[in-house]
Simulated assay, not measured.
Amino acid sequence: MASIDILHDHSKTPAQARKAVEDVARKLSERFDMDYAWVGDTLKFNRSGVDGRIALLPKQLHVTADLGFLLSAMKGPIESEIRRVLDEKFS
Rank of each mutant, 00 (worst) to 15 (best):
I4Q: 04
E30F: 11
R47H: 12
G49M: 07
W38V: 01
R53K: 15
I82N: 02
V63T: 14
E30R: 15
N46Q: 14
K19P: 00
K59N: 12
S11E: 09
N46C: 12
K89Y: 12
A2V: 08
L56A: 06
V85F: 06
Q16C: 08
V39T: 01
P58V: 08
S91L: 02
A17T: 00
R31A: 13
A73W: 14
P77K: 07
D35C: 09
K27W: 08
H8Q: 04
S72T: 14
E30W: 11
D23H: 00
Y36S: 11
F32V: 07
M74W: 00
A15R: 08
Q16Y: 06
S72R: 09
R83S: 07
H8Y: 13
A25M: 15
G49T: 11
V85L: 13
A20I: 05
R53S: 14
E79F: 02
A2S: 14
P77G: 09
V21Q: 03
R26W: 00
A73I: 15
I78P: 03
K27L: 13
A15W: 05
R18H: 10
M34K: 01
T64H: 01
H62A: 13
L67V: 09
K89T: 08
V50P: 06
E81N: 11
L56P: 05
L56W: 01
L43D: 03
W38Y: 02
K59C: 03
L56S: 04
T64N: 04
F32Y: 13
R83W: 00
M34E: 03
G40P: 06
I6P: 02
M34P: 01
A73G: 15
L71H: 07
L7Y: 12
L7M: 12
V50C: 14
G40T: 07
S80Y: 13
